[in-house]
């Protein structure tokens, strides 16, 4: 009886917590509703591109924002997922898209395990350089490998039928498929960040020697974070290949690794929603610039954004918003 009694009269702190959770859930629900109606308001292919890059940026953010590891080679996982899925779907017509994406994701996981094992042997600046060099190795591998189509890439990858009977050739059904993939990926990240595992990652980010002295096997935590992040980046790449029916070297180039850093930085490192917003802004910007007279200046403008972000906007858009919210309303 005592337990029901306390449940009936919750403490003030519990009430506050419950209200905060409720607010958060309502917020997520609103975002999901926006995601569901969005394809009727904007071009679905454009939205799918944003969702793929948002998932890519979220995966990168899991590593930088929550484990404090700067990977400069995340393009390798995006490209691996894309190439593996693209190759499977165009060479083996019997494979359904969800199986193709699953295998592409697993390829990202496997590569992430190899990269991770090597890269976590060095810290900080060196970690960034090692991942960059490994990704460049993969870039050369993709140029020479027999199954990637070399400089041309893989074209005309069939979208196929989801579960064998739902055609994805229609952009609207493709959109909802991509949206579902994105939600699954985001949910994995959300759970990871708020789990005890995520708390340990944050402890490592804040003070690695302290985490070691508390008895945590820091390397194992870092490696697992790296593998999860690589797998989700692979998932993003696989899905992207399905959307555009194309896997190319652009995805493996170090510019791509730089772009995902910019998306995350712009939206807010270490915030769950920041990378999504950053991806939306960068993709929209590229889209708008490509049609304007400034089309050739995309890289220069991205570079300027980088400089501005680092100099005066380090918390990113979502980070700054959260800061001002805390200052004004709490």
């Amino acid at each position: 009886m005592a337990t029901t009694e306390t449940a009936r009269i919750p403490s003030a702190a519990m009430q506050r917590q419950r209200r905060a959770n409720m607010r958060r859930n309502m917020f997520y629900l609103a975002l999901i509703v926006i995601g569901l109606v969005a394809p009727f308001l904007a071009y679905p292919v454009f939205l799918m591109k944003i969702l793929c890059f948002a998932l890519f940026a979220c995966s990168f953010n899991l590593l930088l924002g929550y484990a404090g590891l700067l990977s400069f080679g995340h393009a390798a996982f995006l490209a691996t997922g894309g190439y593996v899925t693209g190759y499977l779907l165009s060479s083996y017509p019997g494979i359904t898209p969800e199986v193709g994406i699953l295998i592409g994701t697993l390829a990202g996981v496997a590569l992430g395990a190899v990269f991770g094992l090597l890269a976590i042997r060095r810290q900080g600046i060196y970690f960034a350089m090692v991942t960059l060099a490994l990704a460049q190795l993969m870039f050369f591998f993709f140029i020479q490998a027999p199954f990637t189509g070399g400089e041309d890439g893989l074209h005309g990858v069939a979208r196929g039928h989801f579960l064998g009977f739902i055609s994805l050739n229609d952009n609207l059904s493709m959109y909802y498929f991509v949206f579902a993939v994105f939600l699954i990926g985001f949910a994995i990240i959300q759970r990871t960040v708020h789990s005890p595992f995520g708390q340990v990652l944050k402890a490592i980010r804040e003070n690695e020697p302290r985490a070691v002295s508390l008895g945590y096997n820091v390397d194992a935590y870092k490696l697992l974070a790296f593998v999860i992040s690589a797998g989700l980046a692979g998932l993003a790449g696989s899905t992207k290949t399905l959307v555009f029916q194309l896997a190319s070297l652009t995805d493996a180039h170090w510019h791509m690794s730089g772009e995902v850093i910019l998306m995350t930085l712009l939206g807010g490192v270490g915030t769950l929603l920041g990378p999504i917003m950053g991806a939306g802004i960068v993709v929209s910007l590229q889209h708008l610039l490509a049609q304007s007279p400034l089309g050739n200046w995309v890289n220069v403008i991205l570079g300027l954004l980088f400089v501005v972000c680092v100099l005066s906007f380090r918390s990113g858009i979502v980070g700054e918003l959260a800061k001002s919210y805390r200052k004004n309303f709490k």
């Binding site: 400069f72 730089g258 850093i261 995309v298 890289n299 680092v310």
Partner: peptide
């Protein structure tokens, strides 16, 4: 120091572009 890497990366993009 990671910010230094990111900032100089941005500068490299600007000069190259």
């Amino acid at each position: 120091h990671l910010y230094g890497l990111l900032l100089t990366f941005g500068l490299a993009l600007i000069f190259e572009g």
